[in-house]
Design a protein around this nucleic acid. Structure first.
Lengths: 132, 132
DNA sequence: TTTCAGTTTATAATGGTTCTAAATAGCTGT
DNA sequence: ACAGCTATTTAGAACCATTATAAACTGAAA
């Protein structure tokens, strides 16, 4: 399996569950956005044994910490994640709660002119809310 | 009271609770950010009768709908609101969960080059996450 | 194979937010 | 001022995403 190395290199044991979640998350042509519930559903559809919700939470957080996933700042009752870990931004369709990637070239460079003493910028996230 | 008109004009009855919440939110020199819990605490400190949590939720949502408050897109277990309703962005201090206003002049114009058919841009929010 | 820390799991607990239904309070017309 | 009506408030229950728990299991190393 191609994900065994990736996991080992991150200090994560390549368990059956993690490998299956890797398949669902990363064996895709395109990157995508998801909530935990949507991922749970996707896992049920693609894999034939069930993975506990707690494991899905644990794994997603572990992957996020390792940089294999990004969390997206949106106000919603659910947390959104992105398998696209490149630097980019999002449209957020208020009507259906769906996210759309905005390439960096679609936004242009963001120049933060103000500094906060003793603090580093970890990330800059632009969210463009869409309505009808 | 100076908020009676404001409320009436928005189709909101100027109840005692709403007027008191107006005082806490808008009788300040500077605008500020808050979560519902923080607002609840502030109300307890400034006002001597208690307002039910449900009323605080209702009122904050009503004010947001009328444009007297803005909701800020941050990933947190709690929802953040802002009494500064001008167009501006935020630093988000990951360590303590505090927000800091970024004036528009601190960021420069954001130019979204891509369009989505049939959709209008409702808002553009930039969140700059800070770490040590 | 034995051992042990890392992992998974079902389930309970947590906590922010929303719902409910009854009591109360503004508002309008008389 | 009063009656009548609807909006609003309220306490408490319900909801639901997420996290904690503690026992069972598993991968990896000796």
């Amino acid at each position: 399996m191609k994900y065994i190395e990736k996991l080992r290199n991150s200090g994560l044991r390549p368990t059956k569950q993690r490998l299956q979640i890797c398949e669902v998350l990363f064996d895709t042509e395109k990157t995508f956005h998801f909530t935990i519930n949507e991922l749970n559903q996707k896992i049920k559809d693609k894999i034939h044994n069930k993975i506990s919700l707690a494991t899905i939470y644990n794994t997603v957080h572990a992957f996020e910490k390792k940089g294999y996933l990004k969390q997206i700042s949106v106000n919603s009752n659910q947390t959104y994640f992105d398998t696209n870990i490149t630097d980019h931004h999002h449209f957020y369709n208020l009507k259906d709660g769906k996210l759309i990637d905005l390439e960096n070239s679609d936004v242009g460079p963001i120049n933060i002119k103000r500094k906060i003493d003793g603090k580093k910028i970890k990330s800059i996230e632009v969210l463009v809310k869409l309505e009808d």
